[in-house]
Amino acid sequence: MASAIPKHVWEMFIRATPQDVWALLTDDEKTPLWQHFNMTSRTEWVVGGAITFFVGDREMIVGKVLEIDPPHRFVHSFSAQWSPDVAVDPASRVTWLIEAVGENACKLTLTHDDFGGDTATSKAVGSGWPEALSRLKTLAETGEPFYIAAPMHG
């Protein structure tokens, strides 16, 4: 029987050093260049520090820095705030793992898990992360932002 505990894992190879990817990931000024919906972020880069993602001045995701091991591992909690159905979910966990593969390449693995069950958050994050990771890869490899228009709802 398949596990009922949701766990999202994305892996990709990036033509950039772990240090280059880490520099993008941990620079709040660069977040809107790669994050879903061009979100901005404000982060206290210490264990226990706050990490918050915004659209405009509205908090969309709030969390805490759980682990920080430059330039290889960054773990933070993730509490979605974008709608009432996700705001009641328990905080989940996002783990960024960056491993060197060769001279100027790395493997990025993002794991989003520890949802506390099959929650609204666990169902919602499957579309945002692939966009953010694709945009991060493009930015790391080319230095150019890759903007994707927000989907029209209506």
Rank of each mutant, 00 (worst) to 15 (best):
K107N: 05
W45P: 12
I61W: 01
K64M: 01
V86S: 05
W129A: 02
Y147P: 03
T138K: 12
S83H: 10
V46A: 11
R58E: 13
F53W: 00
S79E: 06
E67N: 03
F53G: 00
Q81K: 13
T142F: 00
A140P: 12
I148E: 11
S83N: 13
D28Q: 12
E103Q: 15
A91N: 04
L33S: 12
V21H: 07
D85L: 08
P151S: 04
I14W: 01
Q35M: 14
L108V: 05
A100W: 05
L110H: 15
G126I: 04
W96K: 11
A2E: 15
R42Q: 10
K30C: 04
S79G: 09
D85I: 10
S92P: 04
P151I: 02
V47R: 12
V62I: 08
G49K: 01
T121D: 02
W22F: 06
G116V: 02
T109S: 13
V46T: 11
R73S: 13
L25G: 12
P32Q: 14
A100I: 04
N38A: 05
R73I: 08
I5N: 08
G49T: 03
R58N: 08
G143R: 03
A132N: 15
P145I: 05
F74N: 09
G126Y: 08
S77D: 04
N38E: 05
L110G: 15
T31V: 09
Q35F: 14
P90A: 05
P130N: 05
F37Y: 08
V62M: 11
G128I: 11
S122K: 09
D113K: 12
R73T: 09
T52S: 07
P70I: 00
E131W: 03
L97E: 14
I51L: 03
L97F: 12
E131A: 07
N38R: 06
G126S: 13
D113Y: 07
R42C: 06
F146V: 04
S127F: 15
R93A: 00
A16S: 13
I61R: 06
H153Y: 15
P130T: 01
T52H: 02
D114V: 15
E131P: 08
T31R: 04
I5G: 04
R15M: 06
H76N: 10
H72N: 13
S127G: 10
L133W: 00
D89E: 14
A87C: 06
G56H: 00
F54K: 07
T17C: 00
F53Y: 01
R42I: 03
H153I: 15
V9Q: 07
A149L: 13
R135G: 03
G128Y: 12
S3E: 10
P145H: 06
W10V: 13
M39K: 08
D89W: 13
L66V: 00
S127N: 06
A87I: 07
F146K: 12
L66M: 07
I5W: 00
A100S: 14
I98T: 01
A2W: 11
D57I: 01
E131C: 06
T40E: 02
P6H: 09
L110T: 11
A87K: 11
P32S: 14
D20W: 02
K137R: 05
L133Y: 02
D114H: 15
V47A: 09
D118P: 13
T138F: 14
E44M: 07
E11C: 10
I5L: 03
W82N: 12
P71H: 10
A149M: 12
T40P: 07
N38I: 00
P84K: 00
I5A: 05
V9A: 04
G117H: 10
